[in-house]
């Protein structure tokens, strides 16, 4: 199977603050097959988060091409970005970013509902996803009533509501203790099968990095395949 879901060619990204120019990505190439788990490692400040943001269209880039599930991001107009975000990618951040005034179920259902799913369907799908992450009994609890690991699981369920082709996770276990990290790792490992998605995972956690089918090291603006 050689079905590339992500393909970056000569991707260049710089940040300039005043006279100083930071070269984050320099003509970097990257590609990933559908249904795989890819882990990205790299020293702090190397640009891992920036790369994920580019893949998810949260951040623009300077030159090169990025194709995600058929969308050419370099030519995607500003207006279509939200369409791309809600239909192609799902984000999981280091911090859960759940909305405090919404229950776990509502947090998961909301992006689906906002994307145009009928209310019933969005809520039903959210329930299935909470069941999948093992939190169906906590559906009506609010984020403040959940543990860190549970919140992160809800965030994963939320990322899946619109059936994204790619889930982008940026150090999802960064704030968790060892036990919760393990649970989350097991969950993330199952994602490609149960949610029929591709996972790009940025992590410093060597245990978590091991679940990747492939692994890249981001260093000095380039990706180096280490597995």
């Amino acid at each position: 199977m050689n079905d590339l879901i992500i393909e970056c060619r000569a991707l260049t990204k710089t940040f300039s603050s005043g006279a100083e120019v930071l070269h984050i990505l320099e003509r970097a190439d990257f590609s990933l097959e559908k249904g795989k788990i890819c882990t990205i490692l790299g020293p702090s400040g190397s640009g891992k988060s920036t790369f994920l943001a580019i893949l998810g269209s949260l951040e623009r880039f300077d030159s090169g091409s990025v194709r995600v599930d058929g969308y050419e991001l370099q030519t995607l107009p500003e207006k279509s970005l939200s369409v791309f975000r809600r239909s192609v990618v799902g984000f999981v951040f280091q911090f859960h970013f759940l909305l405090n005034d919404f229950s776990a179920l509502e947090n998961v259902a909301l992006p689906g509902y906002m994307a145009g799913l009928p209310r019933k369907e969005a809520w039903k799908r959210a329930q299935e996803l909470l069941d999948m992450v093992g939190l169906i009994h906590r559906s009506h609890h609010y984020p403040s009533q959940l543990s860190g690991g549970e919140r992160q699981k809800v965030a994963i369920a939320r990322a899946l509501i619109n059936e994204p082709s790619v889930v982008l996770a940026d150090e999802p276990t960064g704030n968790l203790d060892a036990a919760s990290s393990k649970e989350l790792r097991l969950l993330l490992q199952r994602l490609p099968q149960v949610a029929k998605t591709t996972l790009v995972l940025v992590t410093h956690d060597s245990e978590l990095a091991r679940i990747g089918d492939t692994s890249f090291l981001l260093k000095e603006g380039h990706f180096e395949c280490i597995r």
């Binding site: 975000r85 809600r86 984000f91 970013f97 909305l99 909301l110």
Partner: peptide, 11 residues
């Protein structure tokens, strides 16, 4: 931050 989250979720 919450508004940014909504935007990242495709709102």
């Amino acid at each position: 931050t919450e508004i940014a989250v909504l935007r990242a979720c495709g709102v």
